[in-house]
Nucleic acid binder design. Structure first.
Lengths: 335, 335
DNA sequence: TTGTAAGCGTTATCAG
DNA sequence: CTGATAACGCTTACAA
């Protein structure tokens, strides 16, 4: 049915150049042992025929696909896109391709993703997805594909991980709030099923408050700017809510609270203070700017890819890296 | 060296189940002609052995990789991430994997990307990248891989395209500005090498001004929030610049101008008006909100993937789709 | 319904 | 330095 030229194969090149397959293969792979003369002859007919080796066949023969799988809930979050861009940079340098696997925050999709990853025959994976458990990663590893897991404490034979640490930074800001005379109980915006990172932060929040013997509030909201914005427009109508400190999951949510406050005529940070746990570009584009916890996701992506290549070469020594969140002060909090 | 189990092959399954390769293959591929009894027997040993077919070998044998290549400058732009997420959704539905190829706005990388795409043996590509020319896409097509190209008028035998149209919307807003008594000449923020989209908008901008016999200004800036913000903080110190209408490439740039204005005590939109040509979430998160031209990139991604599958099945009838930019009014312009 | 065997496009191990 | 030839793991006529 296809009237386009079929792919030229190594065999056709060999025939046209009057050599054997093996020689062509040697030329492609820049093997030493080829006479300059034959090398040129072969290279010329490669160019003339427009031959490109089939990655598929190479992968099958060498048992290396030069493909690495990236498992994420979605590419549509700024911090994930940042990470992706870090991974990309290093992958290019190391000559790997990236194959994307998204789970859409669903356990079912996570399960089918694992199957897909295994049959895809990737050389390794980078996983930043709360839906995957220790067992899942172990399963992937059992098929001989190493993984580096981000922000999810998972260990194993061919597994490395990068952990985010919010503890000290978050604890510090809470203590500082109260020691600076913060009167209203701090509020934590709880998002149902938003993942481990938020869960851990919530724990730190609770623990620190217990230690201090302070009251706190938990406000439920959705992981959506628009919905949270609407919710807080309503919320701020109640005068008793017009003062306080709000700890928000990520910039979009923090911006929603921020905008709802200012749009309601509430002064930030004089009356309402807002903190974002995951800083992105939004943090410095909104007004007032957001005080936010920052992790350099581009760097995380790069490091993940470096660790993975080491893991694939079996020479990764330290299998756990730690990344501390840093507080970047903005105008949405008093100090 | 590896003490982990090697991948189980179809051959081992066959042996363990006491059947031939062919039968196992039939079971995997859900072929009709297998006795329920043997099917069960085979399926059981597949499960027992944890066998997963090798996608590589399947691809080689069938000449279908179920992989589609996505060629973009970077995943790190909100509108591209949006598109990616649309593509992902449909790809999942159609059972394709996505392989990412990024060119980083560099012609050299674009060239090497083409080579990579060809050897990667993808079944098709979606291209949203100004670095690729008609010739490049034709070359890809000549290796029998169809493409859908976004916002770049490219045609060919196995090529479809989706075009963005800014003409009417942009023209309308310019005319309205002057007919509503806009006094200062409009300014267009020119970003060097920012791509065809901006170039086309600039042409429309110029043409419309010529038709109206109006003066205009061109301001050069960089494709970076921070740099543009700094530049305009300076720029707005000059009182003669403190009034005007600024047409900006994308939200980040528009937000930079917006913030520089308000941070300089200039009233938006009373003194300075700002328009963004590529709307994203930023448009409604900043204050004042941005008036912006909007194209639903998630939808564009979906449509691209639908067109591509049709193209791969050789039954795409209409090979060009058009997407009109819509003006979404915000608070950064007067009307 | 099932098995045999040829092929898919490479690499890699041998000889020569 | 070069050429046969056997893998690599699967699909798919063709036979049985």
């Amino acid at each position: 049915m296809q009237n386009l030229k079929d792919r030229v194969t190594i065999y056709q090149v060999a025939q046209a150049a009057g050599v054997s397959l093996a020689t062509v293969s040697r030329v492609i792979n820049k093997s030493e042992s080829v006479t300059p003369a034959t090398r040129k002859k072969v290279q010329d007919t490669i160019d003339a025929l427009g031959y490109k080796p089939s990655g598929l066949a190479q992968a099958l023969a060498t048992n290396r696909s030069t493909n690495i799988g990236v498992i994420i809930p979605s590419a549509n979050y700024v911090y994930i896109a940042n990470m992706l861009s870090g991974i990309t940079e290093v992958a290019k340098e190391k000559n790997y391709q990236l194959t994307l696997f998204t789970t859409s925050h669903s356990r079912d999709e996570a399960i089918s993703t694992i199957e897909k990853v295994i049959t895809a025959h990737v050389d390794g994976t980078i996983i930043f997805d709360d839906q995957l458990s220790q067992d899942d990663v172990t399963k992937i590893a059992s098929y001989n594909v190493p993984s580096v897991v981000i922000d999810n404490k998972i260990q194993g034979d061919r597994v490395a991980d990068i952990r985010f640490s919010y503890d000290s930074a978050l604890e510090a800001i809470i203590k500082e709030y109260y020691s600076n005379g913060g009167e209203n109980p701090m509020a934590f915006l709880h998002v149902h099923d938003a993942g481990r990172l938020l869960g851990r932060c919530e724990k730190i929040f609770l623990k620190t408050h217990e230690e201090l013997g302070k009251d706190y509030r938990i406000v439920n909201c959705r992981d959506s700017y628009t919905q949270t914005y609407q919710q807080f427009l309503d919320y701020f109508k109640d005068p008793s809510n017009q003062r306080g400190f709000y700890v928000c999951y990520r910039d979009s949510i923090a911006a929603a609270v921020l905008n709802a406050a200012t749009d309601s005529g509430i002064k930030v940070p004089e009356q309402v203070e807002v903190l974002s746990l995951v800083a992105t570009k939004y943090a410095y584009i909104v007004r007032p700017t957001l005080t936010a916890m920052h992790i350099d996701m581009i760097d995380v992506g790069k490091r993940a890819m470096y660790m993975l290549t080491d893991l694939m070469n079996q020479d990764l020594v330290v299998k756990t890296a730690r990344v501390e969140a840093k507080l970047v002060p903005g105008q949405s909090t008093k100090k």
